[in-house]
C-alpha cells in the first residue's frame, strides 16, 4: 500500500492519493509510516529524478500537489498521534525584490523533503521575517534576492533578527542569482545554496540534524 501511495504521488494523481491515504488509515497503517514511507519517500524519488534530468519542474509540481492532498487527509491523524513535521521554514524575497519564480521553486522543493513551509511572498519587510518566524516557531529562515541592489537587504533581515535578540534561534539560509557563499559569510548567514534542489537537500540535512523545537 505504501509503495502504491508513493508511485501515485510520483505520477501526480492527487485524487487517487487522497483515496489511498484514506484506505491506508482504514487498514490501520500508522500516520507516520504513511507520511514517511508513502508521501515523503515519493518526493525523494521525484527529487532524484529531477536532479538527474529525468523530469522537469512541472512534473515535480504535480507530484508536490498530490503529496499535499495526501497530507491534508493525514494531518489530523498525525496531530492525534503526536507526530510533528520534520521542521518549519519561513521563506521570502527581501524588501523591494519582486522576483518570486526561483523562491517559489525552492519552497516547493522544501515541501518535497517534508518541511512545512511558510511562504511570505515577495518584497517582504525585514521585521515580517522576524515576526512570522517567531509566530510559527520556525526552524529555518530562507531569504532570497535576485538583484545586486537588493542583495544587501539580506543583511538587513539578519540584523533584524539580531536586533530582536532572536538570531540564535534560527538557521538562516540565503540564495539568489547575485549571492554566493562569500556574501553569506559577510552578512552572517549560516548557509548558502546555489539552486533549489540543493536548498531542499540542505533543509533536509539541517532539520534531520537539529533538535526540532
Amino acid at each position: 500500500m505504501l509503495e502504491q501511495i508513493s508511485r501515485t504521488v510520483q505520477i501526480g494523481n492527487a485524487k487517487l492519493v487522497k483515496e489511498l491515504v484514506k484506505q491506508a488509515l482504514e487498514d490501520g497503517l500508522s500516520p507516520a509510516d504513511i507520511m514517511n514511507d508513502g508521501l515523503i519517500a515519493a518526493m525523494a524519488v521525484v527529487g532524484d529524478d529531477f536532479k538527474n534530468n529525468r523530469i522537469f519542474v512541472p512534473e515535480m509540481l504535480v507530484a508536490s500537489r498530490a503529496m499535499s492532498q495526501g497530507l491534508k487527509i493525514l494531518e489530523p491523524h498525525l496531530v492525534a498521534a503526536g507526530v510533528k513535521p520534520i521542521g518549519t521554514v519561513v521563506i521570502g524575497t527581501v524588501k523591494q525584490d519582486l522576483h518570486d519564480i526561483g523562491k517559489n521553486l525552492v519552497a516547493t522543493m522544501m515541501r518535497g523533503v517534508g518541511a512545512t513551509v511558510c511562504d511570505l511572498g515577495v518584497d517582504v519587510p525585514d521585521e515580517i521575517f522576524v515576526k512570522k518566524a517567531e509566530e510559527i516557531d520556525a526552524d529555518i529562515v530562507a531569504i532570497s534576492a535576485l538583484l545586486t541592489t537588493t542583495m544587501p537587504a539580506i543583511g538587513d533581515v539578519i540584523k533584524a533578527f539580531e536586533t530582536a535578540a532572536v538570531r540564535d534561534k534560527y538557521k538562516i539560509m540565503i540564495g539568489g542569482a547575485p549571492v554566493n557563499s562569500n556574501f553569506a559569510k559577510t552578512v552572517g548567514a549560516d548557509y548558502y545554496s546555489p539552486n533549489a534542489a540543493e536548498a531542499a537537500e540542505l533543509v533536509r540535512e539541517i532539520l534531520s540534524g537539529m533538535q526540532v523545537h
Binding site: T148, T149, T150, M151, P152, A153, P178, F183
Partner: peptide, 8 residues
C-alpha cells in the same frame, strides 16, 4: 550596465 552589490 548595473550597479555592483549595494543598496540604492
Amino acid at each position: 550596465f548595473t550597479l555592483p552589490g549595494m543598496a540604492v
